[in-house]
Nucleic acid binder design. Sequence first.
DNA 1: GCCGTTTTCGGCCCGACTGTTTTCAGTCG
Length: 563
Amino acid sequence: MAVHNADIARLFDEIADLLELRDENPFRVRAYRNAARVVGELSLDIAQTLAEGRELPKLAGIGADLEGKMREIAASGSCKLLEQLRRKFPAGITELLSLPGLGPKRVRALHAKRIGSLAELERRARAGRLRAIPGFGEKTERRILEAAAAHLSKARRFKLAAAAQYAEPYAKYLGGVIAGSYRRMKETVGDLDFLVCSEESAKAIERFVRYGEVKEVLAQGTTKASVVLESGLQCDLRVVPRECFGAALHYFTGSKAHNIAVRKLGLERGLKINEYGVWRGKKRIAGETEESVYAAVGLPYIEPELREETGELEAARRGALPRLVEARDLRGDLHAHTKATDGRNTLREMALAARARGLEYLAVTEHSRRVAMAHGLDPQRLARQVDEIERLNAALTGITVLKGIEVDILDDGSLDLPNSILCKLDLVVAAVHGKLGLARARQTERILAAMDNPYFTILAHPTGRLINERAAYDVDMLAIVRKARRRGIALELNAHPDRLDLTDAHCRMAKDEGVLVAISSDAHSIDGLDMLRYGVGQARRGWLEKKDVLNARALGELRKLLS
DNA sequence: GCCGTTTTCGGCCCGACTGTTTTCAGTCG
């Protein structure tokens, strides 16, 4: 049984829930929540590291006790404390905590009345028997009933690109900015946080709740409000005066863990930091800009994508923040399809679209024959496309089309096309598309074997995950990254919003190990080229700089690296 | 449960909104 970091994180969160229900020391609860977050974001595989007898690195906020519990969970899949806690409550109790409006105090009150599951809660609410419980009223009872019904359809997080379709027009309508995880370019967002500067907050709030797509107003006060859109996406608005804009933007951008750490730095200097500014006593000393907030605690500006409390404050203190890669740094795109296989536009249309977007080169990388569904290319068809690309390059200026392939890595680690044709290409992007369920050791071995092919240049979508749909295949990413380093292979950061694969943590791993990352669109149409922006966002979350990105190189230098 | 250029004990981020209250607890972000 393989225990993943996500499993350890989940169990830590469950312990935190149960400790809260027992009204334990809130700081002890916080320690478990923090540990869940740190473990969940860690790229190093804890169970595997321990299994190999290697030491765990010191993790922030995880001391001897929590490390012991990590070891226990890694070895057995659970831990004694959790088992003890679970015995004190009915099995479904933590589910109740996920309902809006239900926190530990109320769930404890429910438990005292022998309500320990969603089903039971719904039954009692329907019978009108919740309102008799202290702290519950008629309104709460109704909200719980609605929430319980909605919960069954399982609230999902929106992919970043989907959220953008709601967020951008709403922000424009409000005349405000978008903060929260959207601004931090997280791959999915649970809600949208808008910030508006105005001295007339009532008007701004009114405009917010009157937006045409609003289905329901959850809360409406004098400085903040929450709504749910028809799409199911929750949106929150805060209105602040102009002079507070920086402090408010910082506060509502998060992450929560980052904010807490910044406020602690403030406290050490005798400063209080809230969404209205940085305060020394009653005097506001900063807050008009985000820069002023950071400066108040002695730090340079930190980019939103870095604000996850995963070392950015320490780096800022040392003056060692990365100069993050930007969209305009990209000189080309190294993964795209055309009509020849499953793309929708012709070779020429794709080349012109890339040129129109300011790119210097575009690699055309069709599927290989194994992917029959996409009419993958066999050696003869690929040879014809190579000729076609050469003719097109002779006819076009301002854009160079590179000859490539997205060749399948077969079950045994060989490639789907012979070297006799691969050697004629500028680059070979290789990818796993089948046998996703192989056991970790075999999957890893298969990919490592493929990387021995001398023409292998880029590993496409290295984890194979589809956001909200399919988990990553089980693979030893560190072994793959290290092999890539030895073989001079780059890893792709597939920018498609469904993939964003590599993850942010894997980008950092690649950077730390000295492996270049190719930010590629995997475009199947000319519009697909625009997805590069999400790849850049993910790369920035992974601390990547221009120098870490293969396709931030000019064509000449790229050719040198490819050869 | 963690942590320490004040500390191995005693701290641990901060404010708004709602509903159920008669002045505030609970929840949320």
